[in-house]
């Protein structure tokens, strides 16, 4: 059969839908991901919650103005008494400046303890508001560092294979062999006297044990993608190994790792809070949810009366974790390879 006999028709693509400008601008994958996220009610709920937390973190100085010349991350305290005061109690001593909206909303000149005080008269409201920054900072930083280390190790391991892979994976196994919380606690406790009480020790402790999951996941995704036909095709047309890795494999292998990361942010924030709760995290009085919860320790038997010392920071922490998990779950669904047929 020759070309004259059967003229080749010029074929049109299957979908006639013109690429919409947003898709053109974002690129197909990002567009599809974003679209998947905004059409899923769970993820919308998660993103609204998350948006709220980001707003609170950004607007902290307006929501809870700190005392002049004081470190805003130090929770202001109203005296030194042991017994918690209930929400709505008026500030007596060292009252921070009134936020501008307070008068507009209530018509009063007097600042109150919106969420009450914990034992030691630490203001719970200030702790919750400024603690949002701490939670976001700790969760994001720990995850980001963990992902960076994990991605580096996973990529090197899969790229070089052989003994490099062997060594890296045995190290990973070693780090995974310990129970995460226990070792992180121990390391944080060991580091705290050396680095001083503060955010650094618990964060380093968590980072050290956080990267293993990312490294393993990425490595196995790279290894399976390496046998995909488009990667073989790239080799056949003479693309060099490093370019194959960065152009063809990593961009397609990284998404599950990022999804895992988004789901881990919440849990690192809660673990970090846990370390603070146990006193091997942030210093006393630092705006941190775990820290706040630890003030409730002496009143556990009387929570019927002093519910607010647990309720406010506790619920905030749970919502924070929930928001990341909702977004992460939705991301996973959108990026699930089995859903790729719907592209």
């Amino acid at each position: 059969m020759t070309a004259q006999e059967m003229p080749m028709p010029t074929l049109a693509p299957r979908t006639r839908r013109p690429p919409n400008w947003l898709e053109a601008w974002l690129g197909h994958d990002v567009y599809r991901t974003v679209k998947g996220l905004v059409t899923n009610p769970m993820s919308v709920a998660g993103m609204i919650l998350l948006g709220l937390f980001i707003f609170i973190a950004a607007a902290a100085p307006m929501l809870a103005p700190p005392l002049p010349n004081a470190d805003p991350y130090n929770i202001p305290r109203d005296g030194y008494g042991d017994v918690p005061k209930s929400p709505g109690t008026e500030w007596k001593s060292r009252q921070p400046p009134l936020p501008f909206w307070w008068k507009a909303v209530t018509g009063k000149d007097q600042w109150v303890h919106l969420m009450g005080t914990a034992s030691g008269q630490w203001d719970i409201y200030y702790g919750v508001i400024w603690g949002t920054r701490t939670a976001l900072f700790a969760g994001l930083t720990i995850t980001l560092c963990g992902v960076l280390i994990g991605v580096t190790i996973g990529t090197l391991s899969a790229f070089y294979g052989g003994w490099v892979d062997m060594v890296f994976m045995r190290i990973t196994d070693l780090f995974m062999a310990f129970p995460f919380l226990l070792t992180a606690m121990t390391l944080s406790a060991v580091l705290t006297p050396r680095l001083g009480k503060g955010l650094l020790a618990p964060m380093i402790a968590l980072i050290v044990f956080s990267w293993t999951g990312f490294a393993r996941l990425l490595r196995s995704d790279i290894l399976s993608l390496r046998e995909r036909e488009y990667v073989l095709a790239a080799r056949v047309i003479g693309v060099k190994d490093t370019r194959i890795m960065f152009r063809h494999i990593l961009p397609n292998a990284i998404f599950p790792t990022l999804v895992l990361a988004s789901m881990r942010i919440g849990s690192y924030a809660i673990t970090f809070a846990g370390l603070s709760f146990m006193g091997i995290g942030a210093e006393v009085g630092f705006a941190d949810w775990g820290q706040l919860l630890s003030f409730a320790r002496d009143w556990m038997t009387q929570l019927r009366e002093y519910w607010y010392i647990v309720m406010y920071p506790g619920v905030t922490l749970v919502l924070f974790v929930l928001s990341w998990n909702l977004v992460g779950d939705a991301l996973r669904d959108v990026l699930d390879p089995r859903m790729q047929g719907s592209r």
């Binding site: 994958d29 995909r228 488009y230």
Partner: peptide, 13 residues
């Protein structure tokens, strides 16, 4: 070389 699976032989990105 051309490959068997047209859905796997082109980089989706």
């Amino acid at each position: 070389m051309i490959f068997q699976d047209p859905y796997a032989s082109l980089n989706p990105r």
